[in-house]
Computed example of a mutant assay.
Amino acid sequence: MKVLLVCAAGMSTSMLMKKMESYAKENGIDVAIDARSFSELKDPKEAGYDCILIGPQIAYMKDKVLKRANGLPCDVIPLKDYGRQNCPAIFELIDKLLA
């Protein structure tokens, strides 16, 4: 599976991405994760992403992300899970999006 994390500048989400990659490796989850800023969000479906997770700091932009998502499932990462880098909860969110 291929997941795209989107935030304002891509910096804090890059930290989460690294934590998620470590968690996935430790738990045998086959996933590729990228972090991008909203301004870099072009055609995620064409790029092969399966879903998009939005950083809570740009939750207000969810409708704009959905327009660019080209039908891909998207949701905002809950603030508490984002702040705590709660990978189990974030992967549960991914599973719900892809179900």
Rank of each mutant, 00 (worst) to 15 (best):
L79S: 14
M61C: 05
M20R: 02
K45R: 12
K62G: 05
I90E: 10
K2F: 01
D30G: 11
Y49W: 08
D34G: 14
C51H: 00
A89D: 08
Y60S: 14
C7W: 06
V6S: 06
A8H: 08
A89R: 12
K67T: 12
Q85S: 14
A35E: 03
M17I: 13
C87E: 11
K18G: 15
L16P: 06
A8E: 13
G28Q: 11
K19R: 11
V31E: 04
K18R: 09
E92T: 15
P44T: 01
A9K: 07
K42G: 10
A24I: 01
D30C: 07
Y60H: 11
A9T: 14
C51S: 09
L4P: 11
C51I: 07
P73R: 03
P56N: 12
V65C: 00
I33D: 03
E92Q: 15
S14D: 10
E46Q: 05
L79D: 14
I33L: 03
V3Q: 02
P56C: 04
K62V: 10
L16S: 01
L16K: 01
A99E: 15
A9M: 07
N70K: 13
V6D: 08
Q57M: 13
I29M: 09
E40Q: 15
P56E: 08
A24V: 00
V65Q: 02
C87F: 08
I54S: 02
D63I: 03
L53G: 10
N70E: 07
V6Y: 05
G71F: 01
V31F: 03
A59P: 04
I52Y: 00
G10Q: 08
G83D: 12
L53N: 04
D30A: 14
L93M: 10
S39W: 07
N27W: 01
A32V: 13
Y60V: 14
I58G: 06
I77T: 06
L53H: 04
G71L: 03
R84E: 10
R68A: 15
I94G: 06
L97E: 01
E46I: 12
E26S: 06
A24R: 00
I54D: 00
V65R: 03
M1P: 01
R36Y: 09
P78I: 03
D34Q: 13
K67H: 04
M17G: 09
D95E: 15
D43I: 13
G28I: 05
A8P: 08
F91H: 11
C87D: 12
Y49R: 07
C51T: 06
S14Y: 02
